[in-house]
Design a protein around this nucleic acid. Structure first.
Lengths: 343, 343
DNA sequence: TTGAAAGCGCTAACAG
DNA sequence: CTGTTAGCGCTTTCAA
């Protein structure tokens, strides 16, 4: 069961390892006959090159690292799906790691990846990360990095993002166009830029339609959770009896809202319309089904790898590294928690 | 930006690479002073050993492969979570790949992993896989493999499974104990062993409680989908007006059932009880919430890595490889789609 | 058309 | 206590 190496093939054929190596790679300066003999034997012995030896020579492993805050999550697992698929098309394998939304872990995991000499890193920032030295230093040492979803302007590298502000604008506009006049917004913890952008999009839409902004219509879910959505709702309804629309910044919260409204016997969308954000799987199993903003997670992963791949090629060809920013478009998935557009 | 190697350190310190190597590994036969000098410089230069070179020497990469049918799936992503965490504790990184429930892809991905000289493979079989040569040959070539969730007796290696039959028995028994007399079972495509085991568990429970088995109460969902559950339900109710319980072999189907019953104005659990299988996230957001069988996915992943790790050690120590089978226990999560147990 | 030799970076046996 | 040497398996000049 000894491992089949070039040497084994060379010896049994009475050739040198270099000839065998070249024969297997179809170099033009090898006798066609020899090539055939070598290739046949290699196949018979089931030869596969030793990846470590190759990597040691070539400085490339054809392995990349992917670091997400949280793997057990429809959004991120879809991104991973996109990355893995696109990577595979180009001959790359993907090591997956999680930061658990912790700055310390993010640093630690990044180091693990760098130490493994992988070819590049795809990264979505943890919510807790507010310093970026650990990432910038990796980049300045020559490791190609691409950021996606949770990004920062303080890091100079390619990025894949969605336009949260526009997406939130669209969501709010949809509520307005379906006749809502008093629209609450449930926002999240202040830190991540996405939260703020969605909040801004909400305001912007009100502005466009001359609906006065009312600060008391803004509520905060600290945990991005179903329970938060559920619990906030009675308060919202209590504070604003005339309310006819709720835009939650993330689906589980919206689903909490939906269920709470149902328990309060408030008809959705007849009395109150609800729109979420993210298009989680459950949106189509709730009652009523949830209108929401779809973030094309698979595509985000796909594009992220493509950007990395571009730079991998740039490096190989001695070209400059780019810092492209790709914005993937969102779209609203119309379901039954909002009314039909009027006009 | 030249890479820092042992040689660089050795040269600047006027030492040999072997001395440096040993100093960094704290060998006892190195002058403590030298050690300090070396370690200091290594730190200052931010030296990290070249993983390829190490792997080439040691024949180990500290990387394992993980192949699942489908990554975007709460069950599997939880397993991956367990694997990655446990692996990290032991200094291993994980390459994740998907077979998309395709035999061809399974073969292909497995080959990619083997060719990368990773240290071991964790694998859940695709539903389509009915020949196991591709796996057995990998094992016989000395690659440690551990199977989990979807396994086969025709492969001799460690396995982590849940006792589907017992779990289904428990689920059915729960319905019976809460007073159900006429219980339908929605089963899945014949192939995977899990489906059959759940079906057997269902039968077994009826038997124990002297409820005659009625073949017409068995329905099949081909797609394991919400839609299947929804569409089958009206037929089930039509066929069996006296029906008071439904055991669906997987949660999305059960949720389809739930929603269909609601639309038919059939009260759950008052008129019909529903129990699912898997404990997907949505179970707690449906209305009523869904009683279901919980499969401890995280633990499955964790245990799978542990079994692999054991064999990795066995190999290193020249011991025999084991083929342990670990059964992780399931439990029923009681929610509101079933009644309280009577007696 | 083929082979010898060097080297990628690291480790370990052995000598000094 | 330190250095020399050889070798992991592969690729790539360069010489034959």
């Amino acid at each position: 069961m000894a491992k089949v190496t070039l040497k084994v093939i060379a010896n049994t054929l009475g050739l040198s390892t270099s000839t065998v190596s070249k024969a297997l790679k179809n170099y033009s300066d090898i006798n066609p006959e020899t090539k055939l003999r070598v290739q046949k034997l290699a196949k018979d012995l089931n030869y596969t090159p030793n990846a470590f030896a190759q990597s040691l020579k070539s400085k490339g492993s054809k392995i990349i690292g992917l670091l997400v805050p949280d793997l057990v999550h429809h959004f991120f697992s879809s991104i991973i799906n996109g990355v893995i698929n696109e990577a595979e098309k180009h001959g790359y394998l993907v090591i997956v790691l999680q930061s658990y939304e912790s700055y310390e872990d993010e640093k630690k995991q990044l180091k693990l990846l760098v130490d493994k000499n992988i070819d590049g890193i795809l990264l979505s920032l943890s919510d807790k990360t507010i310093k970026y030295d650990h990432i910038n230093s990796i980049i300045s040492e020559g490791m190609p990095v691409v950021l996606f979803d949770k990004v920062s302007q303080l890091i100079d590298c390619p990025k894949v993002i969605i336009d949260d502000r526009k997406a939130a604008f669209d969501a709010t506009e949809h509520l307005i166009k379906t006749g809502c006049k008093t629209i609450a917004h449930i926002t999240g913890p202040l830190k991540p830029k996405t939260t703020i952008d969605r909040y801004m999009g909400y305001k912007k839409a009100l502005e466009k339609y001359n609906i006065p902004f009312d600060k008391s219509l803004i509520y905060t879910s600290e945990n991005l959770s179903y329970e938060d959505g559920y619990n906030l709702t009675s308060k919202i309804i209590n504070d604003h009896p005339k309310l006819d629309g709720i835009f939650a910044f993330i689906d589980p919260v919206a689903i909490g809202v939906l269920n709470s409204l149902r328990d309060m016997k408030i008809k959705v969308p007849k009395q109150v319309s609800v729109i979420g954000f993210s298009n989680w799987f459950m949106c189509k199993t709730t009652s009523p089904t949830l209108t929401t903003v779809n973030q094309p997670a698979y595509e985000i992963g796909e594009r992220a790898f493509q950007l990395l791949f571009e730079n991998l090629n740039n490096i190989e060809q001695g070209k400059a590294i780019t810092s492209k920013i790709v914005e993937v478009p969102t779209n609203i998935v119309f379901r039954n928690s909002t009314k039909k557009i009027i006009d």
